[in-house]
Design a binder for these strands. Structure first.
Length: 569
RNA sequence: GGCUAGGUAGCUCAGCAGGUUAGAGCACGUGACUCAUAAUCACGGGGUCGGGGGUUCGAGUCCCCCCCUCGCCACCA
């Protein structure tokens, strides 16, 4: 039994995330956590909401609520939806927690002690009307290059030219529309990532088994142009972790907070502390190499937009602190999921959002499609046709129908109890050999976190059940040799129990439904397949379950395609 | 513009230390079966592996050029 620490990139607080966000981190992280638990490992799975920053303040203002209240509410909303998708976090924390405040300030102090913090005075656009400094992309104006009137301060969406806010003609605040803007000087703290460059490069180079997506992005940031740049870790905002050091003021940093990218990943640790406080558990044995974490394997999941922070910035924080913190062992990153020929768009309400998804179909349907199409090697695309085909074929026809035909056949011929003791004849022995190979392939894919391949291998195991039943043909055998037919069904019922155990990481509710119907609660992973296939003894009572999955009709598909094409309701 | 990743059957994707007739699922066709959610199982048709050049006994797989998509480019997170 090994110990696995798993974290999912923490979703931002301002609103409900879409399916692309879900499949990019939380869902595959959950798959892996469930799999490792299933195999008997000790798992700590942490996620949280990322609550600081300008967008949170603006969203709260728009909602007419104090930002702390807004975040608390949205956290509960996101937690409820995560529960709806059966995301099995050990703790779903908040980056605004007292634990994270203390720990973020602690890291800042540790980094300062190591000489890795420097002050930088920079100029930034200030909106007098809004009373706040504006990030570049919160400034709009006419593009000096192409004349596009809604060019953003960092880049023109029309001609894609990179801009500086001062280049814009007639600049205005995106927030208020105000043109009362001026350049002001402001002092910020920078993390000297550049000083960590060689150490980070050597570390990344040692990670030869990481997805290319993880390493290529990291290397680009490390070596592109002048190489890894120092990065500001403070902002002129009121909502955030005060830019102090272990609670002591830092001269000149009054009224400033740490920048979200700095405090958000620290929440992985602080979230574990929150968990410890809640449960009385020991967080340090997961995170402190001097307090029991040396045998922990730490895996992070994230979308590609988060890779630089997790491969460079957060490791700079960890390594730079010179304290014995656990560093990540494996970074699993994902590309984007597109929606029907374009992008998912939060602002335009394009695509399916997590709450809407649960409103039209149970979580297993989404989990299965998203995981079996996870954007691992390239961007993937969600289409309703594809979704309908996968759900109907894989879930309803292959797995659901298998469970249905076996339990119903047994009920009609032998009643609702196990009709025999499992005996392996030639046919079953051959099937078991195939199953063993398939199971090994499934486990290998899961161990390597090859999500799509794992789904493929799992499905192949389901198909074996249909192949077996079709060849054994108990509906024919029963007419001449009832004992043999009973044996076939007993074997098939036990096979179905195995499917529940093996499928649980992907489709936990359906797995539970199978187990409930089989009147069984033995989720032991089939390390010993010969014993596992005999788990349900002769005479064991079971129930015929409702159909596990229903099919998606063409009418529904068309209706949904129309409904989610634009404008979120 | 620079950089990343990709462009393989109608669709979604595997394959890539270069090596027998390029694979899977879906869709399509034929057959089998009739226990089951008009489900299942078997067999089959279908690809000049984006284009062009090169290296090699041999290239989807390596090199060069071009075309096309997606994304990133550090003050969004």
């Amino acid at each position: 039994m090994a110990r696995h620490l798993i974290t999912s990139a923490i979703p931002y607080i301002n609103g409900i995330k879409h399916l692309g966000n879900l499949v990019g981190s939380q869902l595959p992280a959950d798959l892996y956590a469930r799999y490792l638990r299933g195999r008997g490992h000790e798992v700590m799975f942490i996620c949280a909401t990322d609550e600081h920053g300008t967008p949170a303040e603006l969203a709260a203002a728009k909602a007419g609520k104090p930002v702390a209240d807004y975040c608390a509410e949205m956290h509960d909303v996101q937690a409820a939806i995560a529960g709806g998708f059966r995301l099995s976090f050990d703790h779903f924390g908040r980056s605004s927690s007292p634990q994270n405040r203390a720990l973020t300030q602690h890291f800042a102090k540790a980094l300062a002690d190591q000489g890795l913090i420097r002050e930088v005075t920079e100029k930034q656009m200030y909106s007098v009307t809004d009373g706040r400094f504006l990030p570049d992309r919160y400034i709009e104006g006419t593009c000096p290059n192409c004349g596009f009137e809604s060019a953003r301060g960092d880049q023109c969406d029309n001609c894609t030219k990179q801009l500086d806010p001062v280049d814009l003609i007639n600049p205005r605040s995106v927030i208020s529309g105000s043109t009362d803007l001026e350049m002001r000087e402001t002092k910020h703290l920078f993390l000297r990532q550049s000083a960590m460059k060689d150490k980070l490069a050597a570390w990344i180079d040692s990670k030869t088994d990481w997805p290319v997506l993880s390493t290529s992005i990291a290397k680009k940031w490390l070596f592109d142009g002048e190489g890894l740049q120092d990065r500001g870790i403070t902002r002129d905002l009121s909502w955030g972790v005060p830019a102090q050091f272990d609670g002591a003021p830092w001269a000149g940093m009054e009224g400033k907070v740490f920048y979200v990218w700095f405090d958000a990943p620290i929440e992985y640790i602080a979230g574990t502390q929150e968990w410890a406080e809640k449960t009385g558990g020991d967080w340090a044995r997961w995170w402190r190499l001097d307090q029991g974490a040396e045998d922990v394997t730490y895996t992070q999941f994230m979308g590609k937009d988060n890779v630089p922070f997790h491969t460079l910035s957060f490791p700079s924080t960890i390594l730079g602190s010179a304290e014995p913190w656990k560093l990540v062992d494996y970074i699993k990153s994902f590309n984007y999921l597109n929606y029907d020929g374009g992008q998912f768009s939060t602002s335009r309400g394009r695509g399916v959002f997590m709450d809407q998804a649960l409103g039209i179909l149970p979580s297993d349907y989404w989990r299965w499609w998203l995981l079996s199409h996870a954007p691992e090697s390239a961007d993937a695309e969600f289409t309703w046709e594809n979704f309908q085909a996968s759900v109907n074929k894989d879930l309803a026809d292959v797995l659901g129908n298998l469970v249905s035909r076996v339990t119903k056949f047994c009920n009609s011929k032998f009643g609702t109890e196990m009709p025999a003791t499992v005996v392996l004849t030639e046919r079953e022995t051959a099937l078991m050999a195939q199953f063993r190979d398939g199971l090994a392939a499934y486990e290998k894919a899961m161990d390597e976190i090859h999500v799509r391949r794992a789904a493929e291998e799992l499905r192949a195991l389901w198909v074996l059940g249909n192949e077996y039943l079709q060849a054994a043909a108990p509906w024919s055998v029963v007419k001449t040799d009832e004992a043999a037919a009973r044996g076939i069904i007993a074997f098939a019922l036990n096979l179905i129990r195995l499917y529940a155990v093996l499928s649980r990481p992907f489709i936990p509710d359906a797995a539970q439904a199978i187990m409930t119907a089989l009147n069984c609660d033995d989720w032991t992973w089939p390390e010993d397949l010969d014993a596992a296939i005999r788990s349900l003894p002769e005479g064991h009572a079971f129930a015929v379950p409702e159909n596990l999955f229903r099919k998606i009709t063409d009418e529904e598909r068309e209706d949904w395609a129309k409904r989610f094409a634009g404008r979120r309701e």
